[in-house]
Write a protein that binds this DNA or RNA. Structure first.
Length: 260
DNA sequence: ATGTCTAGTGAGACTAGA
């Protein structure tokens, strides 16, 4: 089972690019972030034609997450528990049947948190604490479980081309990195780092200042796998070439193949 | 440090968010 995550930066602007990638990559499940669409306007039919069941949790203007899955959801949960006043659409989770045991996938768009000194940064940290609490509870189920998405966290200096440029940024604060580490240390495996210590592995290149042409990237999209999912991991990769396509998102897809 | 993009509003020479 191939499971992918991709911040598409607007489903309306990205529909042709997304369809081209789905046809090429043919994932069994695709988790999208930043759909920037309300549920009613999400182009479900275009994805259903490719054989996907479509689950969305959108809002007007920005944020928004969606999961496309060839297998139907046996369970669907939206919103991260822990704050009933949080209106931002940043989390959707489904469970599908695997060939042997169920697979639970949470698709998340973690708050950016910039600029520091505003309410945005404490919101990010509070959201991360809620994610840790939810992850802790979910791990107790001892399922093949994964938390995938745009974490807006650069875990280590080697995850940025120019780490010094990110020192004052919410994506690279000690608190942000600390909570990411705390989450991972609950028992998850950072799929990409399971067998790859290389520098220069990125998932995001800014639209500005020729970041893509200079390979000035950061690794902020992550696949965190529970022990049960990690045991079934066959391959993980980043579809870097998609950043060079016409009308690209500023993020690229990252995916993992699990033994079904 | 800043060479951009997306959606929304309302029809911008705009703004917010990233």
């Amino acid at each position: 089972m191939k499971i992918a995550s991709w911040n598409i930066n607007g489903v309306k602007a990205r529909i042709e690019t997304a369809i081209a990638w789905l046809k090429e990559a043919d994932p069994d499940m695709a988790c999208f972030q930043e759909i920037k669409s309300v549920d009613e306007n999400f182009p479900k039919e275009a994805f259903e034609e490719l054989g996907y069941h479509v689950y969305t949790h959108g809002q007007k203007g920005f944020n928004g997450v969606a999961i496309l899955s060839k297998r139907p959801a046996e369970e669907l949960n939206i919103r991260l528990p822990g704050d009933e006043n949080d209106e931002q659409a940043r989390y959707i989770e489904i469970v599908v049947a695997g060939d042997s045991t169920p697979v639970r996938v949470g698709c998340l768009y973690l708050p950016n948190g910039n600029p520091l000194g505003t309410e945005k940064f404490p919101y990010k940290l509070a959201w991360m604490q809620r994610l840790i609490a939810h992850a802790k509870q979910s791990l107790e189920k001892e399922e093949a479980f994964m938390l995938v998405g745009d974490y807006n966290v650069i875990p280590m200096p080697q995850d940025a081309k120019n780490p010094e440029a990110w020192v004052g940024d919410a994506l690279f604060q000690p608190e942000s990195r600390g909570y990411f580490r705390e989450l991972k240390n609950l028992g998850f495996t950072d799929a990409l780092r399971a067998g790859n210590d290389n520098d220069g592995v990125y998932t995001f290149w800014d639209y500005q200042a020729g970041a893509w042409q200079r390979d000035n990237g950061i690794r902020i999209d992550h696949l965190l796998l529970s022990p049960e999912a990690t045991d079934r991991m066959i391959h993980v990769d980043i579809d870097k070439h998609v950043r060079g396509w016409e009308k690209p998102s500023d993020h690229v897809p990252i995916w993992v193949q699990l033994r079904s």
